[in-house]
């Protein structure tokens, strides 16, 4: 796991407040019910910070944010340099 992915993982664990839970890069978060759609905005902002990219609205679907690995792949695919 990259240091950025590790930071994202810690952010998610903090967000879902389940310290006993173990997750990795491929743990399904949205489709397993761990994360609801209202929490996606937090993950997008964190992803933008970690990748130093701007992720434009209209280019991301919740399924693109289902695992940590998918999040970073999505940032690579649709991210633009921050203004």
């Amino acid at each position: 796991m990259t240091p950025e992915a590790q930071q994202m993982k810690e952010h998610i664990l903090e967000l879902i407040r389940k310290p006993s839970l173990t997750i990795d890069e491929n743990t399904r978060l949205v489709s397993s019910g761990l994360i609801d759609s209202m929490a996606l905005v937090d993950l997008l902002v964190k992803l933008e910070d970690l990748t130093r990219m701007r992720i434009p609205p209209g280019k991301v679907q919740p399924k693109d944010m289902d695992t940590i690995a998918l999040m970073f792949a999505t940032a690579q695919r649709v991210g633009k340099p921050q203004k």
Partner: peptide
């Protein structure tokens, strides 16, 4: 706009 886009980018 779409509800999903709003909720991800309020």
């Amino acid at each position: 706009q779409s509800p999903l886009e709003w909720v991800m980018h309020p």
